[in-house]
Design a protein around this nucleic acid. Structure first.
Lengths: 256, 256
DNA sequence: CGGAAGATTGAGAGTTCTCAATGCCTGTGG
DNA sequence: CCACAGGCATTGAGAACTCTCAATCTTCCG
């Protein structure tokens, strides 16, 4: 069962089916896709900013992020990638990545050559699904601009956690009200544009309000509705609407 | 001549040719594209967040932005659109926009129905170019996350101005060292995640360092190289590389 | 047990925000 | 032609938020 959960083709199929219907022909095309599985330790670069590349990767198991280094060595994480995501799908169209993609924990990825990936576009449903997947990633980036630009520390932190549990839920990685998020507060700070110290204090505030608990790698959302309200969260930007009911901040739940 | 500059098909053609080569067949397909020209006054919404839509628009003349409203009514501008840009091209693939697109000055746009736009994808070169255009927009959003998240006010402001003159240059809207940017400091603040007051002070700092001048709607970059350095700017993320020479912060110029 | 990485806390410094007043420019009505 | 209103830019000053520095604590692991 775990096997199937972490089978590259299964994962890709499930991801694509969340945004577009696939026929059995489509599934055959996916199953025939030549791919190579690679294992990375934690904190390893998968591709580096400005690299020219002829392949893209599909996250199978683990956790990764895309980041940029700005002057004076500060780091900004601009995306967090969960299993099923394709962090550098864009490189198919630009041949070059503008961020470094790094693992955050030991991670398994499937490598797909652009020449094979491009072939999938011959298949209309798959092309549509890949399109949507890229466009949805862009929508997340836009929401992050708003999050980092206009929300206060506690709200901003809550917003990211709510986004993550929502995306985790969509891939079946939420058990009860908990999910694994084995990242450090420093990484969280780099994703939120905040210092470690302030991340720590924001998390404490959320804990003291009884909204979350975070023990080891396990984050539990104790009151999702309240958290979503504090977070100023509206799931629309994730564009899960194609298959799921729209959820709004005023009545937000994962179980529907 | 001005006529040709503002002809929708010309514009689209030029935009696409910046990222992919077009054949005469391609040009014919573009010329045959049914489109309707619409005029908007300043500060008018073109499409609103969460709208379902069956069309996309191409900016012909003027200036627009995409924004989100976060809790407590604050606004974050997540993208600035110049002539030749397609602010809601993504809606072709999601059927819905996650931002409001608004004009910042009187603006002329071409409306293209999705049914016609989708047809263009039958044409490989055009499809490639549209792909790249969307992916490049996403790259800009990622850079904005880093800009807003990790750069200080003055640097952040300088970075946006440098990005804008670079993009303006690419569409031929720079005369000498100047371009028109008829937006208020409040709008600039909403794009930078800063208060108006602080925008004003950051601009003053740039002015006092002899880097820019801003008179009425005309911004002049007095020392582009120095500005790019202050801005921590590296043009790679704009992905103009396909046709232009790469420009780096250490030796940055528009005239090449 | 020692060491290392990460979490937590305190305190002062620095940046940015908000509030409020003033100045500047432009278009309009008298 | 001029006074005036409105929108925007500019400046001052204090408040609020976040950062940095530094110390301590906890946990994990060899």
């Amino acid at each position: 069962m775990l096997n199937r959960l972490h089978d590259p083709v299964e994962l890709l199929q499930r991801k694509l089916e969340r945004v577009a219907a696939l026929t059995s022909d489509d599934r055959r095309a996916l199953a025939a896709l030549p791919l190579r599985v690679a294992h990375f330790r934690a904190d390893q670069d998968i591709v580096r900013q400005a690299d020219r590349t002829l392949q893209s990767c599909l996250l199978i198991q683990g956790l990764a992020c895309s980041y940029k280094i700005v002057g004076h060595g500060k780091r900004q994480i601009v995306a967090i990638h969960l299993p099923g995501d394709m962090p550098d799908l864009q490189s198919l169209h630009l041949g070059q990545v503008d961020t470094t993609v790094m693992t955050m924990v030991p991670t398994k990825v499937a490598i797909i050559l652009h020449e094979h990936l491009g072939g999938l576009f011959a298949n209309p449903h798959i092309a549509t699904a890949l399109w949507r997947s890229i466009v949805a990633d862009a929508a997340i980036a836009r929401e992050w601009v708003a999050n980092v630009g206009r929300r206060r520390a506690v709200t901003r932190t809550a917003h990211l956690l709510t986004e993550l549990i929502t995306r985790m839920y969509a891939i079946g990685a939420v058990k009860g009200d908990s999910f694994e998020l084995p990242i450090t507060q420093e990484e969280l700070g780099d994703a939120l544009g905040m210092s470690v110290v302030h991340v720590n204090r924001s998390l404490r505030a959320l804990r003291q309000q009884g909204l979350i608990s975070w023990v080891g790698p396990v984050v539990s959302i104790l009151d999702l509705q309240a958290l979503a309200t504090v977070a100023d969260f509206d799931a629309d930007y994730l564009h899960f609407g194609a298959t799921a009911q729209g959820a709004t901040a005023s009545s937000y739940s994962l179980s529907m």
